[in-house]
C-alpha cells in the first residue's frame, strides 16, 4: 500500500498548490522547495488557477499495472498559464480530439485505485475549457 506517499501529496494533487521562489519569483509546479532556476529555497505557497494549454498529448493503449481499466486514456503535457508545465491526463474529451494548443482547465478526478480493496487516489486532470452561457 502506497498510502503515505499519496497522502503526503494531497495538497498539490487536489488543489494545484505549488510554490513561488523567494529569490527570483518564478512559480513552481510541482512544488520542489528548491528553485531549479536559482537553487534558492522556495517556500511560499502559490495556488495555480488551473488554466493552461496542451503542449503535447498521447493516448495510451498499453497501460501500466493499476491503469488498465481506464485504457485507452489520454496523457498530456500541460503548460499552465502561470508558466510551469506538468504531466496529467486529459479527461471528458467526449468526441473531441485532443489538440496541441487546446485550452484546458483543471478538474479533480480519480487517478487510480489500489485494487478493489485499496485506497482511491485522487488528483488533477485537465479537460477542455467548459463553454458557458449556452
Amino acid at each position: 500500500m502506497e498510502l503515505p506517499r499519496h497522502w503526503r501529496l494531497q495538497n498539490q494533487r487536489y488543489g494545484l498548490v505549488g510554490e513561488v521562489c523567494d529569490q527570483c519569483g518564478v512559480k513552481l509546479f510541482p512544488p520542489r522547495d528548491v528553485c531549479p532556476s536559482c537553487a534558492e529555497p522556495a517556500h511560499e505557497q502559490y495556488t495555480f488557477s488551473g488554466r493552461g494549454q496542451v503542449y503535447s498529448h498521447s493516448t495510451v493503449y498499453s497501460a501500466p499495472a493499476g491503469y488498465e481499466e481506464y485504457a485507452p486514456y489520454t496523457v498530456a503535457l500541460v503548460k499552465l498559464d502561470e508558466g510551469p508545465m506538468l504531466t496529467a491526463q486529459l479527461t471528458d474529451l467526449g468526441d473531441q480530439e485532443p489538440e496541441i494548443g487546446m485550452p484546458v482547465e483543471m478538474v479533480t478526478r480519480r487517478l487510480r485505485a489500489e485494487g478493489e480493496q485499496g485506497m482511491i487516489v485522487y488528483g488533477y486532470k485537465f479537460r477542455p475549457v467548459m463553454s458557458q452561457g449556452s
Binding site: S58, P64, T87
Partner: peptide, 30 residues
C-alpha cells in the same frame, strides 16, 4: 511497463498513468 516507468518521476509523471512509450509519444507529437 510498470517497472520501466520507474525511471520517470513517480509522484508527478507515473502516477498519471504515463508509460515510457507515452513519454516518447509526447515528445514525438510535439
Amino acid at each position: 511497463t510498470t517497472a520501466q516507468v520507474a525511471a520517470a518521476d513517480a509522484d508527478h509523471e507515473a502516477v498519471h498513468g504515463v508509460t515510457s512509450a507515452a513519454l516518447g509519444a509526447l515528445l514525438m507529437r510535439r
